[in-house]
Design a protein around this nucleic acid. Sequence first.
RNA 1: GGAGAGGUGGCUGAGUGGUCGAAAGCGAUCGCCUGCUAAGUGAUUGCUCGGUGAUAAACCGGGCCCCGGGUUCGAAUCCCGGCCUCUCCGCCA
Length: 424
Amino acid sequence: MLDAKLIRSEPDKVRQALINRNNDTKILDDFLELDEQRRKVLWEVEALKAERNAVSEEIAKMKKSKQDASSEIARMREVGSRIKQMDSDVSAIESRLSDITFNIPNIPHSSVPVGADESFNETVKNWGQPREFGFEPVPHWELATSLDIIDFERGSKIAGSGFILYKGLGARLERSLLNWMLDVHTSEHGYREVFPPFLINRRSMLGTGQLPKFDEDMYHTDKDDDLYLDPTAEVPVTNIYMDEILDEADLPQYLTAYSACFRREAGSAGKDTRGLLRVHQFNKVEMVKFVAPHTSYDEHESLLANAEAILQKLNLPYRVVLLSTGDLSFCAAKCYDIEIYAPGVDQWLEVSSCSNFEDFQARRANIRYRPEPGAKPEFIHTLNGSGVALPTLVVARLETYQQPDGSIVVPEVLRPYIGADRIS
RNA sequence: GGAGAGGUGGCUGAGUGGUCGAAAGCGAUCGCCUGCUAAGUGAUUGCUCGGUGAUAAACCGGGCCCCGGGUUCGAAUCCCGGCCUCUCCGCCA
C-alpha cells in the first residue's frame, strides 16, 4: 500500500498513477475525504483522553490524601462513555479507510511506458532464434499423451480439469527441472533455499497483495481454518519477515523456493487453455529479494538476468517485455515478463514475471530495516521473479525439442538429473 | 483431539488496580579513560498515530506490556474470547 502521508500531500501524483493504470480515481477521493474525517474525530477523542488521564491522576492523589473525589469520578464517568462512543467511531472510519488503502495500487516507476493496456508493452530484448523445423511441430498435449508422460484425462478424473497427472519421465522431468533450477539459483546466483508452507493465512495474503482484490482467484479452505492455498511462493517467502525490523547487515537477502501453486483461473475455457496452457495447480521456483531501497532497481535487473539464465542454459528462445502502466499488476512499480516461444502452439508464453514492488508490499507486511545502528526503521524494498514457472517451460521444452518420430531430446544440462538423453 | 504451563522492550527478566512505557542485568550507540585488546566509567538507547514546525530538529498530546472485547474514574495487572509457544497424553503420514 501507499504511504497515507504521500497520498495526502501529493494526491495529484496518485491520481495520475491511477489514470495511467486505467483505474477509476474515485478511490482516491474517497480516501481523501475519509482521511480528513478521521483526523478530525481523532483530534477530538484524543483531547478527551488527555483530560481523562490528567483527572485520573488527580483522583489518585485525592484518594491518597483522603479527599472526596466523587464529583470528579462522576464527571469522568461521562467522559469515559463519550470516549467509548468516539473510539468506536474512529475504528469504524479506520476500517473503511484501510479497506480503501488496501485497494489503491502502486505507483508505476518513471521508466514504465505509459499506456492503457498490453498493446503499450515494450519488447526490450530478444534472445535466440526459434528453431527451424523440417516438419510440422505438434502441440505438447499430443506429444505428451502419445509418449504417456502426461495423463490429462486421469488428472481430471482425480481432481478436475486443469489438474495434471505427470507419469514416468514426465514426472521425472518435472522433478528434474525443479531440482536443477534450485541448484542453479543457489550455487550460481547466490540465493538461499527455503521450503515454505503451501497454506497461507489471511494476513500474509494481504501482505503481498493477493487480498483483498483477488479473493476470487484463490483457493480457500473450507471450515474454520481461513487458509488459502498459496498461488505462488512469493506469498509465504515474502512474508517470512512480516512485522520484523532487519539490520542493515541482513540486506540484501536472496531467497529461492519451490512451491506448488494453486489458482482458480476462473472463467477460462477454450483454445488457450488446452494442455498445460492454463492449469489450476502447477509447480514453480520463485526468487524473492529483500533489499535496501536505493538498490532495488539494480537488483531488479539482476533478478531478471537470473531468470533469463535458466532459459539460456536450456537454449530456449525468449523475449523480455517491459509491461506498460495499464498491464502492470496491482502491487508492482515495474515489471518485466519473459516469454518463451512454443512452436507447437505457435505462441509466445509467459514463463516468468520479474517485479519490483518498491516498499508497497513491505508497507503492507510491515517489513523494515535500520539503515544504520540506532537509526529509524525504514521500509525495505521487495522484489520477486519466477525462476521459472514449469507449465509454460515444459510446453516450450517439449515442443522445441521434439523430433519427427515424436520423441523428445533432453537438453544437456538436464541429462544428469533425468538420467536419459531422450524421452521416447 | 484432551490436560496443564506460559506469552512483558533487541535479549534475559521483575512487576496482581493509580505516580509504570514499565526495575535490574545484558546488548547497542556516543564520549572519557587506556600503548593495543580486555576491563573500567558517564550519558543515551522502543514502536506508532495526531498536532505545531519546513514532509528538519525540537516540543505537545493519544495509543501500544501477544491480539480483540469487557469491568473500572483509572488496567501490563481483574474478567471473557482468540492466536501462538512449551510439557504430558491420545491419534496419525
